[in-house]
Amino acid sequence: MAIQGPIPVSFAQVFPHGCYAVGEVEPVKDFEASTNGRFVQSRDKNTGEPVWQIPVMDADPSLKAAQKTVAVKILSAVQPVAPAPVAGLPITPVEFDGLTITPYVNGAGRLAYSIKARQMLAPRTNVKPTGKEAAA
């Protein structure tokens, strides 16, 4: 098989309706290396970079409540910072660059996905004018 390791995907493929940060960026614990009272941060197997995570809410209206919140892991030498809040919104919209997904079978025997990113940033506004707007 030609695909090995994490599968590159676009932000629009994973979050076509966008997503919102609903928690703080935190280091991911390496459960094998950590001991009682000694926290060791997880490192990515492929890059060796520290792994951070942030819970986000998928804005897809068709998802059930239990499916809306997922953790996105971010590979970064320094702790990523969420974009500034948007005035009038109770939660912060975010986007991710360099996304990959890794499918796996979870403890319940169901297919699940680990989502990793290289960067977290404020949503871009890629609005393209339509025929009417372009003519105005």
Rank of each mutant, 00 (worst) to 15 (best):
M1W: 02
A2D: 15
A2P: 13
G5Y: 04
P6L: 05
S10E: 14
A12I: 04
P16H: 03
H17T: 08
G18Q: 12
E26F: 11
E26V: 13
E26C: 08
P27N: 08
K29G: 01
F31H: 14
A33M: 12
S34T: 14
T35R: 14
F39K: 08
K45M: 14
N46M: 05
N46L: 13
T47A: 09
G48A: 05
V51L: 09
V51G: 01
W52Y: 13
W52T: 07
W52L: 03
Q53S: 15
I54D: 06
P55I: 07
V56C: 09
L63N: 00
K64Q: 11
A66F: 14
Q67I: 03
T69E: 10
I74C: 02
L75D: 04
P80E: 00
V81N: 12
A87E: 14
G88E: 01
L89A: 07
I91C: 09
T92E: 05
F96V: 06
F96I: 07
L99C: 02
L99P: 00
T100A: 07
T102Y: 02
T102P: 03
Y104G: 00
V105F: 07
V105N: 01
N106I: 01
Y113D: 02
Y113L: 02
I115N: 02
K116H: 12
Q119H: 15
M120P: 07
L121Y: 06
A122S: 15
A122H: 08
P123R: 08
P123Q: 08
P123K: 09
R124I: 08
T125D: 15
T125A: 15
V127K: 15
P129W: 13
T130I: 04
A134S: 09
A135Y: 11
